[in-house]
Amino acid sequence: MTGSIKVKAEVSGNIAEVKSLMLHPMETGTRKDADTGELVAANHITQLTFTNNEKLVMVANFSTAVSRDPYFSFKFEGGKVGDTLKVAWVDNTGGNDEIETALE
């Protein structure tokens, strides 16, 4: 699922603020398909991680009850403009994506 992640990370003083959006259906496993009437299998991001240069700064674990196309924002100390920020997710079906950006 390449291209599923949008991220913006801005440094202000010693704090970097990260805002991210993942395109993902986040299926609960309890929804019925409108046409076939059959249950749509659960398909959701389980873990979202953020790494600043080589340092892991965030691990977010999700259930199916995180909204479709998850939005997640947080802040960390010590990031500098130009640092690499890697965002990666995995889902319960083995799907995954990752993106690298630079702190602004």
Partner: peptide, 27 residues
């Protein structure tokens, strides 16, 4: 979310240097 069928919705690790705050959207 106490009345969701599976109440635990998200659990976020706050690593050293990360501020104890975040925003997200839930069902």
């Amino acid at each position: 979310v106490e009345k969701n069928p599976r109440p635990l919705t998200a659990t976020v690790e706050i690593l050293p240097g990360t501020l104890p705050e975040f925003s997200c959207r839930i069902k």
